[in-house]
């Protein structure tokens, strides 16, 4: 659907993004991750043709991205904004028409979304009469009104309560199922783990990591296992002896523990289980994958990141 090939952009000799390439497939949610000032917004503005890249190519559906493709893209910027004195309907018609819809199609599409979100009563309300969360919802509707094939969402969950976050998440999953592509730029790593298929971590304008979200987490795993059991903690420790290293332990109740441990030597998960089964009653045992937050922090704060920035 969308392909970026070695994109460079500087502002007054200060690098904003350098050599960034990525591919977003059909029916995929792609996470764009990075700390503040990493260059995410610049990249998003380049894809939206708000600013022009200095170098590199962007293709959309196999063609060089041009203004004619903008009607197939929906964009929700991080800093939300609507015309405060216009009503929800006027706003939607105006923004819809800018994206190539006819007045009637915009009205029809708005009706569909207002019904879906059960907010038909808002249609004639001016934006200034709505709460911040309500306005956010309207802005989301305005973003998807023209049924874009590519949706670019910058922090789409900020400002929403948990119920509405779930609502938006559900819609995004539905759009993915319908074959739409979504680029999600966010700091909310939980959302990334939950809904993103693939993603990229950008730091100081350069790509640090890219890939399938589960694979990214797998790659960063450190061989730590979590064992929850009932029994004697001393017996548990004795059974492990020198083949394993206890990283952390938590007392859940009398004779009930959760232990994080690392393998030593050639030991594997099955060996661990075989060692423990005769001594304690195992309730739960799993390998711990690092959270995306851990991956993100490690990647951004890692020692290898200190050398760049010209």
């Amino acid at each position: 659907m969308l392909e970026l090939d070695s994109i460079y952009k500087s502002f007054y000799r200060k690098r904003a993004v350098a050599d960034i390439s990525l591919k977003v497939k059909e029916g995929e949610i792609y996470g764009l991750l990075g700390p503040n000032g990493a260059g995410k917004s610049t990249l998003i503005r380049i894809i939206n043709k708000i600013i022009q890249q200095d170098k590199g190519f962007i293709s959309f559906k196999g063609q060089i991205l041009s203004s004619k493709h903008l009607n197939e893209i929906g964009y929700l910027p991080e800093e939300r904004g609507l015309y405060k004195s216009m009503t929800v309907e006027q706003q939607a018609i105006f923004l819809g028409r800018l994206r190539g819809l006819s007045k009637n199609d915009a009205k029809e599409s708005l009706r569909y979304w207002l019904q879906k979100f059960e907010i038909e009563a808002w249609k004639d309300k001016r934006i200034e009469e709505l709460s911040k969360g309500m306005a956010q919802k309207v802005q989301f509707i305005c973003t998807v009104l023209h049924k874009p094939h590519l949706l670019i969402l910058d922090e789409p969950f900020s400002g929403f309560d948990p119920i509405n976050i779930e609502l938006i998440r559900k819609e995004l999953k539905q759009m993915r199922a319908d074959g739409k592509s979504i680029i999600l730029s966010t700091h909310n790593m939980k959302s990334v783990e939950e809904i993103c298929d693939r993603g990229m971590i950008v730091h100081k304008g350069v790509k640090k990591l890219e890939g399938n979200i589960t694979t990214l987490r797998e790659d960063k795993k450190e061989g730590i296992f979590a064992i929850q059991f009932q029994g004697n903690m001393i017996a548990f420790a004795n059974a492990l002896w020198t083949g394993y290293e206890i990283v952390d332990k938590e007392v859940l109740a009398d004779n009930r523990f959760l232990v994080h441990l690392k393998m030593r030597g050639e030991n594997e998960f099955n060996d661990l289980l075989a060692t423990l089964i005769p001594h304690v009653k195992i309730e739960k045992a799993e390998e711990i994958l690092p959270s995306m937050e851990d991956v993100f922090i490690k990647e951004v704060n890692g020692p290898q990141n200190t050398e760049d920035e010209a």
């Binding site: 503005r45 939206n48 043709k49 708000i50 203004s67 903008l70 009607n71 893209i73 964009y75 910027p77 800093e79 939300r80 904004g81 609507l82 015309y83 405060k84 923004l95 800018l98 994206r99 802005q139 305005c142």
Partner: peptide, 16 residues
């Protein structure tokens, strides 16, 4: 006003 309420970014994604 368009600049401070940030609608300008949405508009600029459709028009130059």
């Amino acid at each position: 006003k368009e600049k401070s309420n940030r609608i300008v970014e949405v508009i600029l994604a459709s028009v130059s």
